[in-house]
Design a protein around this nucleic acid. Structure first.
Length: 259
DNA sequence: ATGCCTCCCCGAGGGAGA
């Protein structure tokens, strides 16, 4: 089973690039971030016509996440637990049953810039809530995966120019420590379980020819709990899609699981 | 890079992204 994450930077602007990618990559499941759309405005028929079930958690203009799945999506939950006053649409999860069941979580972690400041405080508070959800998924002892735009550069090797990101909310020590605190519960960064070394990125800025200079960062991740990591067959970044017409600034990252 | 694009709002130009 192929499970992908893709920050599409607006469903309205990306419907063509997204359906092209889906038709070629044929993911069984795709979690999407930054749909920037209300649920009622999401063009679900584009995906239903291709055989996908569609669940969205959108908001007007900003953020918004979705799950597409060729198998039924069960027990759908919207919103990350831990703060009922949080109105930003950044979390959706559902269960999919293949050879066995897996809990699929799609997330759009706050950017957090400028740091320090209230947006950075929100990022770290959100990551604390994520830690608690990750803890519960660990306790379940059932396969679970948390995939999305983490807005975290885990290590220096995950940026072409780490010094340019030193004071950025994506790379500050507190951000990386909060990410490691979650990983250290026992999660596997699927990409790093399959590919080592520098030069592998999932985001390139639209500005200053970042793509042409391969000036990227790796911030889109799939974290697997131990029961899901047992099933890991492969993990890849579809970097090539960044060079196409009207691309997102992120590219898809996917795992193949023995499910 | 306190911002070189691109997205969204809609019908100008500002906020947000990373």
């Amino acid at each position: 089973m192929k499970i992908a994450t893709f920050n599409i930077n607006g469903i309205k602007a990306r419907s063509g690039a997204l359906t092209d990618w889906i038709d070629e990559a044929q993911p069984d499941i795709a979690v999407l971030q930054e749909i920037k759309s209300l649920d009622e405005n999401f063009p679900r028929e584009l995906f239903e016509d291709r055989g996908y079930s569609v669940e969205t958690h959108g908001q007007k203009s900003f953020n918004g996440v979705a799950i597409l799945s060729k198998l039924p999506l069960e027990d759908v939950q919207r919103g990350l637990p831990g703060d009922d006053s949080d109105e930003q649409a950044r979390w959706i999860e559902a269960t999919v049953v293949g050879k066995q069941a897996i809990r699929i979580c799609g997330l759009y972690l706050p950017n957090g810039n400028p740091a320090p400041g209230p947006k950075y405080d929100y990022k770290l508070a959100w990551m604390d809530r994520l830690y608690h959800r990750a803890q519960d998924l660990m306790k379940s002892e059932e396969p679970a995966l948390m995939a999305g735009d983490y807005n975290i550069i885990p290590q220096e090797e995950d940026a072409k120019r780490p010094d340019a990101w030193r004071d950025d909310a994506l790379f500050r020590p507190e951000s990386r420590a909060a990410f490691r605190r979650i990983v250290n519960l026992g999660y596997t960064d699927a990409f790093r379980a399959r590919v080592q070394g520098p030069g592998h990125y999932s985001f390139w800025d639209y500005q200053a020819g970042a793509w042409n200079r391969n000036d990227g960062i790796r911030i889109d991740h799939l974290l697997l709990n131990p029961q899901a990591a047992d099933l890991l067959l492969d993990c890849r970044i579809d970097a090539e899609s960044r060079g196409r017409e009207k691309p997102s600034d992120h590219v898809p990252v996917w795992v193949e699981l023995d499910l």
